[in-house]
Nucleic acid binder design. Sequence first.
DNA 1: TTTTGTGCAAAAACTTTGCAACGTA
DNA 2: TACGTTGCAAAGTTTTTGCACAAAA
Lengths: 130, 130
Amino acid sequence: MIKRNTIQKQLILNAVRNLRNHPTADDVYNYIVQNHPNISKGTVYRNLNSLAEDGILIKISVPDAADRFDDTLKKHYHIKCMECKEFMDVNLDYMQELDDKVSEMTKYKIFSHDVVFKGICQSCADKSKS
Amino acid sequence: MIKRNTIQKQLILNAVRNLRNHPTADDVYNYIVQNHPNISKGTVYRNLNSLAEDGILIKISVPDAADRFDDTLKKHYHIKCMECKEFMDVNLDYMQELDDKVSEMTKYKIFSHDVVFKGICQSCADKSKS
DNA sequence: TTTTGTGCAAAAACTTTGCAACGTA
DNA sequence: TACGTTGCAAAGTTTTTGCACAAAA
């Protein structure tokens, strides 16, 4: 099954790269539909999943929210404020050694691991004090 | 708002503890409904989320699947086979120092972090070879 | 040509919610 | 009694899918 390089696929990959902010499928759709009103949401989902399968994007499972997609130039971690739902990168180096260790322990072939920190951002913490 | 200790709440907490296997809300419902046919799925969802809020259970976001719930006796990590969907514990110690480090970096009050390893289990790897 | 990908709409999967009745403290 | 909780069903959200047509290779 040879994957084809369609216009939609390029639009979707570019959208994720341009938006940067780990967009959801819906974010990607809304971005593209402005200039390409005929694109369908089904196509967005299909391509995002396909790109994630090929390792060109990563799919991030977010607590209590839709999946997000991110460029894989560099593996990194995320943090979510459980109050205001802010979701952003964490500037920690990817711990490749964990994958190696877990691979040895479990005999799995590990692709990668996701880390999501959960907490309350400073601004929400301040609000709840007052 | 004082939380009450209802029969349903106890059934739900026991179900998660007995099932062990990080059940989904649906798993919990199916387990309980056998002996308590009147319990409703809405109640299961409400209680699981409430227990997770109170830190009595954790809610785990799983790639391409429904959320799972787990007992919090000991924080730990998980691994998922992207082929057969097996989902299980990983015997790695919880890295508390990451929470501390990220808290300092981001000024977030960190509750915890989730780690999910993604890969292919040995049995699936063998199958795809043949 | 061949066969993968698209758009559309319907449906599946998962989860939340409004409401009247109920049960706990 | 007061008010948090339940069961039920309806609705919300997110994601997948069947199909006929379009378009890459």
